[in-house]
Each structure stands twice: as C-alpha cells, then as structure tokens.
Computed example of a mutant assay.
Amino acid sequence: MNYTIHEMARLLGVAPHTLRYYEKIGIIRPWTDKTNGYRYYSVVDTRRFNLCRALRAAGFSLEDCRVLLSDPQGAESAALLQKQAEELSKQAILAQLTARQLRHMQEVFGRVEENVGQIWQEHLPDAWRLTIAEGETPLKDPQKEQEKQQWLEYLPIVRWVSRIPHETFCRYGQGRVEYAPGLMISAEDAGALSIPQTPQVEFVPGGEYACTIWRQVGRGPFDWDSLREPLAWLRQQKISAFGEGYSTILASRVNEAGRVENYHFLGVRILK
C-alpha cells in the first residue's frame, strides 16, 4: 500500500509538516515514482513512524529515536534504553513520594490554625541538608549551586528548610535571628531517589524534637517571636540540652486585611 503525504497524515493522525520533518531527520523515507514524479509513503514508513511515536511517548528525543531506529542492537541504543528506564523508575518513585506528601499537606492544612503556638514532642527521621545561603544572601559556591539545581528537581520531596543555630537560641532577644536557608530531604527518601551524599551535603540526625507552628504576618525575616514558644516549653520541661532548630513553611494565605500570613513549622532538636 502506498500513500500520498496527505493520505499518510490522515492515517496516522498528524499534520503533513510532521511527516516532512520526520523525513528530514531520516525516520521515514518516502520513495519517488519515476513514471509520474510523485512521492509516496509505504506501510514500512507507517511502522517506523508509529514505533518512533511510541518511543517519544516513553520520553525519548527525536535524536534518540533516530539512533534507536538506525541501530537497535548497538551499544548506544542499549545505553539510551537503560538510561531512560532508570529515569522513568526514578520518576515513578518521585510521583509516589509526592502523592504521599500531598496527603500530608492535606492533613496539615486542615489543622494549621489550631496548632499555631502549640508545642509537641515528635520523633523526626534522619535527613540530609544542603546549605545554600546565610541569612538571605546566597553562597557563592559554583559546586553547591550546581548541586542545588539538581536537588530542586525533586521538589516537593526536597523542602526549603532554614537552620537556626543553637547559639541563636542561647542569646534570645539579643541582636538579630541568624539562620541559614537550605534544601532538606529525609535520608530515606534521598536513598530511594538515589541522590548522592556528596561532601556538600550535611547529615541532620533524627530523634526527638520540640515542635511548633508559628505564624508570621507581613514580609519581614525571622524575628525573636518565632522562637519564644519552643524556648519557653524547653525551660518548662527543664530541658537544657538542645541543638539547632529547623524551620520550613507549611502554608500561606492573605488575611482579611490584605496582609500575607505564613505558617511555619519549627523543630528544635532535643539532645540526650
């Protein structure tokens, strides 16, 4: 069976210019009838086009498809298939973790207001963290910047978390609140996503944390009010051994007065 370009396009459900482009890069190859000068496509072209379309649906580029259809048993084809299979497996894991994260966000949103100012003790898992700034000033480290971009591909499983040093808690009310923004992920999730633990990545030990939700109204940075409740609770519980605090945004809204309200989670590590 032979097809004109318009017949072929109608059969495959694409535009003629798509067929011309696939011809240009060598995926399909129409033949020319020397008796009338017309160019025709054959069933061979429909098969190659549909195979390429299936590969495109699996995430391959047109250049990848050209390689796979030129030498399917070659080393380059094998490497392309292996790489894409690994990438899709990672995407499937990320999708599963993201669905879990969204269910957690649904729970948090439902009770965020009632938990403002409340203190509870919670066991948090081991985590990995990549510091990317001091205060609001980005670190000028090309290697860390490259790693930051790689980590950002795993949002929302990777979270934006600021570390508040122990020394800041110790001088409560004096000077300004020092903090270091960064990216953070549980060690278990990092392992599931095969994120490498490079020298740039710091380990944040899990364990018992004094936790709270604090509400920030307006557009300023951290202030001492955000640390008041957990510090008061630690003193009340006679807990003198504690470490850094880690804060991340949970929710945000614009109130009736038109002001932005951010709800932050803060966990302060309790040391034994």
Results as ranks from 00 to 15, higher is better:
R163T: 06
W233N: 12
L88A: 01
A92W: 02
T248L: 13
L231F: 12
S162Q: 10
A251F: 15
V14H: 02
P230L: 11
L231M: 14
F169D: 11
A95Q: 07
W120T: 14
G207H: 08
F203Y: 12
G173I: 07
L271N: 07
D33I: 02
T35P: 04
D223T: 04
R47I: 14
G207E: 08
Y154W: 15
L62M: 15
E76K: 08
C65R: 01
G258P: 05
C52F: 00
R215A: 15
F49G: 08
I157D: 05
N115K: 09
A75Q: 13
R219E: 13
P230R: 06
G243C: 12
E229L: 09
R171V: 14
R66N: 04
G59M: 04
Q73V: 14
T212E: 10
E63V: 05
V177M: 14
W31M: 04
E178S: 10
L51E: 12
G117Q: 10
H104R: 08
T32I: 12
A75D: 09
A99C: 06
Q174M: 13
L130I: 11
S186V: 07
S61T: 13
T18H: 07
E147A: 09
G175L: 13
Q216C: 07
Q101A: 10
Q236K: 13
Q216M: 03
T131C: 15
V108P: 08
E178P: 00
V116L: 01
Y154K: 08
S247E: 11
L155C: 06
L51G: 04
A78E: 11
Q121E: 14
D126G: 05
R66F: 00
E188F: 04
Y38S: 02
E113V: 01
Q197F: 10
T137V: 13
K140P: 00
K24G: 04
W120F: 02
R10L: 11
C170A: 15
A241W: 08
E134P: 02
P142V: 03
R48P: 12
G191W: 01
E244S: 14
G59Q: 01
N36I: 00
A54T: 03
Q96S: 15
R39M: 09
Q197E: 08
E134R: 13
